[in-house]
């Protein structure tokens, strides 16, 4: 029971911290908003994708972007805990480190889903066609995906000493993951190298699955994208737990 209580309080800590950083919420939505509002509507007038508007095509991709950025950040923030000392407090507590990882992953995922919901609202205001009934399954998927990315963030953070590596992660991992995911353009018509790279990118399956749930069309069956995501989720949680357990202060 005690582990569950600890998980709950660690989850709650993430939420409290999130609710107190208004600038983080606004900052996390600003770039995706510009993408959607400017590129989405701007390109929308010259580009049509498959059987819908470009905005409808792009909205699930941008949603995936918000979730990706939000959750990776929540995970990598472990480095800040390390720099500001709080990590030590959790390291010497009689709590399993696995519980700390779970609490953090659930907390980070919750905040990422909140950001995702806000973005979903913005997309609908901008004119994206999204049915109300599709929102709930999309939220469930976003939550699962967020747990995966927060774990990935924790795994990365566990191997880094300070915040200097953070920019590196953003530029050489997160941005390519986003651009190679088919969030902005259909992969079916993309050049081969890009397509191959995108198939080893978990983000691709996030975009595919979200697009399926929100617009009803995708290039691969939901069973495939869902299955691959489920597998990646387990893998990243295990990796995070293993690496976090190895931290020695």
């Amino acid at each position: 029971m005690s582990e569950l209580t600890a998980i709950y309080y660690i989850w709650r800590r993430e939420l409290i911290r999130f609710s107190r950083s208004k600038s983080r919420i606004i900052g996390s939505l600003a770039m995706p908003f510009f993408f959607l509002a400017i590129i989405g509507t701007g390109l929308g007038s010259v580009v049509t994708v498959a059987n819908g508007s470009y905005l409808d095509f792009m909205a699930p991709g941008i949603l995936a972007m918000v979730v990706l950025f939000g959750s990776i950040f929540s995970g990598v923030i472990v480095i800040m805990d390390r720099q500001f000392g709080f990590l030590k407090e959790t390291m010497v507590a009689p709590v399993r480190r696995t519980s700390i990882v779970i609490g953090k992953a659930l907390g980070g995922a919750t905040t990422a889903v909140i950001q995702g919901l806000l973005m979903l609202g913005i997309a609908m205001l901008l004119g994206a066609h999204i049915e109300m009934v599709d929102i709930l399954p999309a939220v469930a998927l976003m939550f699962m995906v967020s747990v995966m990315f927060v774990s990935l963030g924790i795994a990365i953070a566990s191997t880094m000493e300070d915040m200097q590596g953070f920019q590196l992660v953003m530029n050489f991992l997160v941005m390519p993951m986003f651009f190679l995911s088919g969030a902005l353009f259909p992969l079916t018509t993309a050049p081969d190298p890009i397509r191959w790279l995108s198939y080893i990118n978990p983000m691709t399956y996030v975009v595919e699955a979200l697009r399926y749930l929100l617009t009803g069309t995708s290039t691969m069956p939901i069973a495939v994208s869902g299955g691959i995501l489920g597998f990646s989720l387990v893998l990243s949680v295990l990796l995070a737990t293993w690496l976090f357990n190895r931290i020695e202060s």
């Binding site: 209580t5 800590r13 500001f84 000392g85 030590k88 507590a93 009689p94």
Partner: peptide, 21 residues
């Protein structure tokens, strides 16, 4: 320092209590 600066004193203590069962 190993406090969480973003939390209140009470929240820091509360979290500690939870982790110490």
């Amino acid at each position: 320092s190993s406090l969480d600066e973003e939390l209140t004193a009470y929240e820091n203590l509360e979290l500690h209590g939870a982790m110490y069962n």
